[in-house]
Design a protein around this nucleic acid. Structure first.
Length: 411
RNA sequence: GGAGAGAUUCCCGAGUGGUCAAAGGGGGCAGACUGUAAAUCUGUUGGCUUACGCCUUCGAAGGUUCAAAUCCUUCUCUCUCCA
């Protein structure tokens, strides 16, 4: 098999391919242009979006040309694949803003050079389509009977599928056709929920252009306990540091289940496969360290090495005994000296730190023995904390349970 | 357009006049055990309050009643069947 495909397979990226043998042969012959689509439904990508882009990098490094297609046009409709309900429609302005920030995030990760890796926005060819022409040229190639047999639509026959969403597949197929004509794109990659849409595009190109194109999908990544990966208590794991802080991002990977370590190393880092396996097969203290490595590597890829170092230092300070790490890297907030001198109730302090959303929860935390300040367990909710509590660095280290840490700094 | 069913807390889902901040499950959080893991067990899970208690919540707005998630009216939305 072609080396690049072999890499993808070895790292667990391969789920389905329309014709692996012929694709392999084509890739052996020379650089192949491929694309991944991504609809700008939010202002930031989350880690679940990234699987195809990790694959993008593997293929790009192997010398193939990649296009990241931002779906500024298709997002106007909404992809029903894998969704049990219609998603709410976003305004065009919103979509344009999202497109721009997503393209920037992808650029940081992939490094578009404009020749072997670049972005396109399907808004450019979809926004002004003429309905009648589109139906005559493209629509006639689609069989409703066949479309209804796709899993993505069958699923929605129960709950209802609007006509606008039913058209999504035509637009995505048209994208592939456009990229084939404009850029000679021969391969579309994407999550396995895109299989139906990808296959439809390949068929459209065959009918209209008589050319052979390929599709390759990646498995939906779930955690060992069967949850969708990248879900945290605050929602998805976003790439935007303003939404998910690098520290929280790091902690997500740090806390992954043993059984997921190897798989995640293979898919979300670029460490050699053999090393990933060795790390993932470790036990006890070894597997625990492997998680630290995993967390650092992924954080470095998304937020840069500096942020990864900071997150690691903070984590070590928070969990590894106070001397190992760097407490100044733990998430923190300032509190005025005046207020500290007056003293502040513990409940308010925990709310101020954002460790709990309300005083009731803070009270619960104290009652359940999960509230700790500077290694002192708080068992009375009426406790008042003042300047005399400050540690050597003039700070308060608040802990909510064993995993969440926050520092209050005197200003 | 016609007929019927429905909308309950983060999710699913019970509740048909007061004993309802609302059963049960899921999820979340905390504790124990550990390795910042999994599994298991225990507790907890609207807000404010030291506490008695007070306030807000059962699709929306009105109404009946001493008292409404529960009854009535109108509205919005969803689903099923018919056209």
């Amino acid at each position: 098999m072609n080396a690049a495909l072999e890499t993808l397979k070895e790292r667990g990226f391969l789920k389905q391919c329309t014709d692996l043998d012929r694709l392999s042969k084509l890739m052996d012959e020379g650089p192949v242009t491929f694309y991944v689509g991504c609809d700008p439904t939010g202002p930031s990508l989350h880690i679940g979006h990234m699987v195809p882009f990790f694959a993008f990098r593997h293929l790009h490094e192997a010398g193939h040309r990649g296009i990241a297609l931002v779906g500024g046009g298709t997002a106007r409709i909404g992809d029903p694949s894998g969704k049990s309900e219609m998603r709410k429609m976003l305004s065009y302005e919103q979509l344009d803003a999202n497109s721009a920030s997503i393209a920037a995030q992808l650029d940081r990760f992939i490094g578009f050079d404009g020749t072997t890796a670049y972005t396109e926005n399907n808004k450019d060819w979809l926004a002004d389509l003429n309905y009648i022409d589109f139906l005559r040229d493209i629509g006639r190639h689609f069989s409703v009977n066949r479309m209804l047999s796709f899993e993505a639509y069958r699923m929605r026959m129960e709950t209802g599928l609007s006509f606008i969403e039913f058209n999504y597949q035509l637009l995505q197929s048209y994208d592939f056709l456009q990229l084939y004509k404009r850029r000679g794109c021969r391969l579309q990659i994407g999550g396995d929920d895109q299989w139906g849409n990808i296959v439809a595009g390949i068929e459209l190109i065959r009918r209209v252009e008589g050319a052979e194109c390929f599709g390759l999908t990646f498995p939906l990544v779930t955690t060992a306990d069967g949850k969708k990966m990248g879900k945290t208590e605050k929602g998805a794991l976003f790439l935007d540091p303003a939404v998910t802080s690098p520290y929280d991002f790091f902690q997500y990977w740090r806390n992954v289940a043993d059984a997921d370590v190897e798989r995640f190393l293979l898919m979300f880092t670029f460490l050699p496969a053999a090393e990933c396996r060795a790390l993932g097969n470790a036990t006890d203290a070894g597997i625990n360290q492997a998680k630290e490595r995993l967390a650092w590597e992924v954080t470095a890829l998304i937020h840069g090495k500096d942020e990864a170092d900071r997150a690691l230092a903070a984590a070590q300070a928070a969990f590894g005994g106070s001397k190992a790490g760097d407490v100044s890297q733990i998430p923190s907030r300032e509190l005025s000296g005046e207020e500290l001198d007056h003293g502040m109730g513990v409940l308010d302090l925990f709310v101020y730190a954002g460790l709990v959303p309300s005083k009731s929860e803070a009270r619960r935390l104290v009652q359940q023995g999960g509230a700790i300040i500077n290694d002192r367990k708080i068992d009375d909710e009426k406790t008042v904390v003042d300047s005399s509590w400050l540690d050597a660095e003039g700070a308060l280290m608040l802990r909510a349970g064993k995993k969440r840490v926050f520092r209050i700094l005197r200003r």
